[in-house]
Design a protein around this nucleic acid. Structure first.
Lengths: 342, 342
DNA sequence: CTGAAAGCGCTAACAC
DNA sequence: GTGTTAGCGCTTTCAG
């Protein structure tokens, strides 16, 4: 025998039904109004608006997500938001998605493929409107889950490998090539690449490889100097010292990012080594300090915010039914900023 | 007359019911197993585990959130993740919350109170387990919504004002006081505070006020020099030039953060002004470059990651029923790192 | 320890 | 343009 409906845990105080009652329309009209206000008559619309205002109704997106079988959430998985590159992209995406009333669910892999797999699994539990991953390299299980789930996937910050659905980013080897060409053009002939944690930083490694390849092709000497710790100015200083040990008459370095480049610059200062005359330095990232140091740092600027905005655009396009294309790839390019360190 | 159930939009492929069928138990047992495995008999447990594995079942947290009237999501609202301080806290929280299988929903106010209000409204739509806000200053409407919603609220990165529920952070005026005392102790007598966007940066303003107040009390001359743009090394250089205009024999500056301090340091270098002999510099933040520059920067380090971890601890405590206390406030303190710029 | 049943608040087909 | 209706997949009493 059916029991009485008893009072349960704390529920939402005012629901769509309350709004409907107050506005003297049906719940589905309220629902429609909330999603497509223009599809509702003006009189009903304003009655509903009044009711919402009066009752301070807050829609329950969890219920909506369940009913619609897709929530207004986008899962973004990056290696780390402490990294300024990804922070910029996440910020740009959040700003763009917000306008479409989409929420950002954030996850950090800390550069761990297994962790990424776990995050993807949880992300799928939310039936997100899309999943954004960093890079093109994922575990087999991750790929499998994603393909089965029928969720649009966007891979960011890397181009040039097999992609799941869409990819937005640039070719990191081209960054390395640009740096090498630039240094060679400045008359430098004994080059080195200063890299931190290249065994983990796939994209840093690609920049390194592009750099070395381009230098070799130009018949210029080139060394790779690396350190297992993560990129910081301290490590940059150490790397420059190491490089000078290996190539005493070194005259040009490219760095895996601007933290390293700044450390190298500081080290030159301590060694009274003139930049760019004795040694030219090229960084990557155009971080907050890069234009202000002495001398200002020549660097390559990726467009982290453009990556974020394009990703948001793709997601929205997909939701609204435009942008049927899967497998698009968008090259957001990069810019070499020639400043006085080279 | 009831219609036939017709095929609807794409639904979840394998549900808890499928798992239950496969494991020959009821759905509620599966549910129980998922939330409290120890409450289920070993035999049922392993049958369920096998079924989950076999069917690659992914639980639907949206449905769970609706049924439980509280989702496994925590909404974190910060001014910006591009800011290294907040990025650190967000990263630490995400790492801690992840272990409890809680998701982070992220929002940026871009330092706009109205935007915060909007973000809180949307956040509430998700029936989150908790809401984390930055600072103690919010619009009246924000406070009202939050109080009505019966969601635990944690305010971070600021202490010393009226708080909604819990607050975790430190007293920014004490940071200013510490900087002033330090400079005075180093024998400096003509001080200035270099600040960016102090009209918007409440906490920077508090540090500034503490600094000025402490200097005045010690009978030392002090000026505030500010710029409306957001903090960067460029602005730091400009501010130092301005300060020298106002106080030609300036001998000590505190900066609203390390970006400004670094810019001031670079400017000193360009002006051949010796640091710390002629001018001592104290920053705030201990950013990535602070220990590596020439000379290394004396700075005050807040514990952004501790704030994040403590926030996570509070949230988990609240969910598990321990930590009944509302209105706790946790002082995470800060550390003055005396390096060679002072 | 396990199962049956009753929704959580909303969306979307469909009929009017 | 608006209302009726049937769930979305899960949690949570409560009974056994």
């Amino acid at each position: 025998m059916p029991r009485q409906p008893r009072s349960r845990r704390k529920m939402q105080s005012v629901t769509m039904m309350d709004v409907a009652d107050y506005a003297k329309v049906s719940p589905s009209t309220v629902s429609l109004y909330l999603r497509r206000p223009e599809a509702v008559s003006a009189s009903a619309g304003s009655a509903i608006a009044r009711a919402i205002e009066k009752l301070s109704y807050v829609p329950n997106l969890v219920a909506g997500g369940l009913a619609a079988a897709s929530s207004r959430a986008v899962s973004i998985i990056v290696p780390s938001v402490r990294n300024a590159f990804f922070a910029e992209t996440v910020a740009a995406m959040q700003t763009s998605l917000r306008k479409e009333r989409l929420q950002v669910i954030l996850g950090h892999t800390e550069y761990d493929e297994k962790e990424e797999e776990d995050l993807v699994r949880t992300a799928l539990s939310w039936a997100p409107a899309a999943i954004v991953l960093t890079g093109l390299c994922h575990s087999e299980a991750t790929r499998r889950m994603l393909t089965k789930a029928h969720v649009p996937v966007i891979e960011i910050w890397e181009l040039g490998g097999p992609q799941i659905d869409a990819a937005i980013g640039f070719h990191h080897d081209q960054v390395g090539i640009a740096a090498a060409k630039h240094l060679i053009q400045q008359g430098k002939r004994r080059l080195a690449f200063l890299g931190a944690r290249l065994h983990e930083d796939r994209r840093g490694k690609q920049r390194c490889d592009g750099f070395v390849e381009a230098a070799r092709q130009a018949g210029v000497s080139v060394e790779i100097v690396q350190h297992p710790a993560s990129a910081s100015a301290e490590v940059g200083g150490m790397l420059l010292r190491d490089a000078l040990q290996i190539v005493p008459d070194l005259d040009g370095v490219a760095c895996s990012n601007d933290h390293i480049a700044l450390g190298a610059l500081f080290e030159c200062e301590r060694l009274s080594m003139s930049v760019p005359e004795k040694l030219a330095i090229v960084g990557f990232g155009d971080l907050s300090f890069s234009a202000a140091c002495n001398p200002p740092l020549t660097t390559i600027r990726p467009s982290g915010d453009l990556i974020g905005r394009e990703a948001a655009r793709l997601i929205v396009g997909h939701m609204t039914g435009k942008e049927q294309e899967q497998k698009v790839s968008i090259d957001t390019r990069f810019t070499l900023l020639h400043r006085r360190s080279s």
